[in-house]
Design a protein around this nucleic acid. Structure first.
Lengths: 229, 229
DNA sequence: GCAAAAGTGTTAGTTGTACACCCATGT
DNA sequence: ACATGGGTGTACAACTAACACTTTTGC
C-alpha cells in the first residue's frame, strides 16, 4: 500500500514484488479416514513430489475468486466449503522465485467427485492427512496448519456440513467428529450436546438397507458456517 | 505457485500480478479505552483520510519481516506481540491499482511509546477502536476483523500480556479484559478463573503510592502466546 | 434367532455465576 | 476518620462425563 512518500521509496526496491498464488487444501473423508487432495508434479525442481492444487492469482480476480477457479480447474469441483486459511511468505518456500501463497481450506463430501488425472499432472490422489508423502514447497506446513484449524473449528461450528451429503445419520456425523479429532465419543453425550447447538434437524425419513435397525436421517439447518458457542 | 503447465499458462495473463503489501493493526489501551494507531495520508486520492501503517513487501523479506519493518519505520517500535490476521484481496481495495494486503495484528503497552508525526505523515494518532474516522482503502474492515479476533482470543489465551507492562496488578489485568470485551466482570470470579489458567505468577512485590491499600504485583509466566483451553 | 448398529436417562463431578464484607493505605 | 480500591469464600445453577440396556432390522 503506497500510503506515503516512505512507501513509494519502498517500492523502488521492489519494481516487481513477490508473485501471489493461492493453494487449496481440500479435505474429505474417505473410507473413514481424513484425506487431502494432492497432485504429483511432472516437471521442474519439484518433479515427482506432491503438492496442493494451486495457481497464480490473476490481476482481475479476487483471492477468493482465484481459489474457486483453481479448485474448478484442478479438481473440477465448485460450490463447496471454502475459507482463507493463512498466507505463507517464507523466502525459501519456492526455489524458483519469491512467492507469497494465500492458502485456502476446503471441504467436500467425497461422494461428490472422484479426482481424475489430467494431461497436466501425472497423478491426482487423496492422501492420508496424518501420513503425508514427500511434498513440494512448504505444503506440508500448510496441511498441518489446516488440520489444526479443522480440529478446532469443528468444536465450535457446524463446519462438518462440508464433509457430509445433504442427509445423513447421527452416527455418520459422530463418525466425522471422531475422525477429525481422532478420538471416540460417547453416543449419548454427543447427541445431547448436538441437540443443544440446534444445528441439525430431523427429516422424517430413515436409512434402510443396512443389516441393522434403520437410522433416522438428519440434515443441517444451515449449509453455511454457523458458530455454536 | 507454478506447479504445472496450467499454472504457467495462468501466469501469461499475469505478467505482473497484484502488488503485495502489509498493513499493521496496532492496538493499545490508553486512558482505559481500546485504541488503534492511524496515520493521516497527505497526498493522492486518499488525501486527508486515515490509514493503518502499511507498506509494500520487499522481494527479499518475509511477510513477518515486512510487518516488523513497517512497524519500526512508521511507529518506531519493535519487539511486541505480532500475528498475521487475514489477507485482503478485493479488486477495489486500492483505487490506484490492484493490491493484496496481508494484515497483521499487533499489541503494545502504551507506556512503551508515544507516536510522533514525521515528515511523511501530517498526523499519527491513537483513535478509538470502536469509533473510527473516515478511513482509506478497506481499512475499516480490517479493524473490525481484528477487533473480533482480539475479543475472541483474549478468552482462550494469555494475549493480554501484549497490552501490559512486565508487572501489573490483577485489577489492571481485569481492566484489560473488561475494555476489550466491553463488559464488567466480577472480581472474585475473574481471579478464580485466572488461577485455574495458571498464566500469571505473583512477584512478591506490591504497588504503593495510590490512595488505597497496596495491590500485589503479578507477571505473566510466559511473554509469548499460550492457549488456556 | 443372531449379529449389528440405533436409540434412549440418570448420576456424580466439575465449572460458572451471583453475591458482601473487611483491609491497608493516602490524604 | 474517611475515601479508595484490594482482597477473599460460599451456595446454587449449568454443564460435562461416565455408564448399560432395549429396539429394529438383515441375514
Amino acid at each position: 500500500m503506497k500510503t506515503s512518500g516512505k512507501n513509494i521509496q519502498a517500492s523502488k526496491n521492489n519494481l516487481t514484488g513477490p508473485a501471489v498464488a493461492v493453494d487449496i487444501l481440500l479435505f474429505s473423508i474417505i473410507e473413514k479416514r481424513l484425506k487431502v487432495l494432492l497432485l504429483k508434479i511432472t516437471q521442474g525442481p519439484y518433479k515427482d513430489q506432491w503438492a496442493l492444487p494451486g495457481g497464480l492469482v490473476w490481476i482481475d480476480e479476487t483471492l477468493d475468486g482465484a481459489a474457486e477457479r483453481v479448485l474448478q480447474e484442478k479438481a473440477g469441483i465448485k460450490r463447496l466449503y471454502l475459507e482463507q486459511l493463512y498466507t505463507f511468505g517464507g523466502l525459501k518456500r519456492d526455489v524458483r522465485g519469491r512467492s507469497v501463497s494465500v492458502a485456502y481450506f476446503a471441504l467436500v463430501d467425497s461422494d461428490k467427485f472422484i479426482p481424475k488425472t489430467t494431461e497436466y499432472y501425472s497423478d491426482i490422489r487423496w492422501h492420508e492427512a496424518e501420513d503425508l508423502p514427500v511434498m513440494a514447497f512448504d505444503h506440508k506446513e500448510i496441511v498441518r496448519y489446516g488440520l489444526e484449524r479443522l480440529q478446532n473449528k469443528i468444536g465450535y461450528s457446524n463446519i462438518a456440513y462440508g464433509l457430509l451429503p445433504r442427509e445423513f445419520t447421527l452416527s455418520d456425523l459422530q463418525g466425522v467428529y471422531e475422525i477429525i479429532i481422532g478420538e471416540k465419543l460417547d453416543k449419548r453425550n454427543f447427541r445431547k450436546k448436538l441437540k443443544m447447538t440446534d444445528i441439525v434437524a430431523t427429516t422424517e425419513r430413515v436409512r434402510l438397507g443396512h443389516k441393522n435397525r434403520p437410522a433416522g436421517l438428519y440434515r443441517f439447518k444451515k449449509r453455511g458456517l454457523v458458530f455454536t458457542k
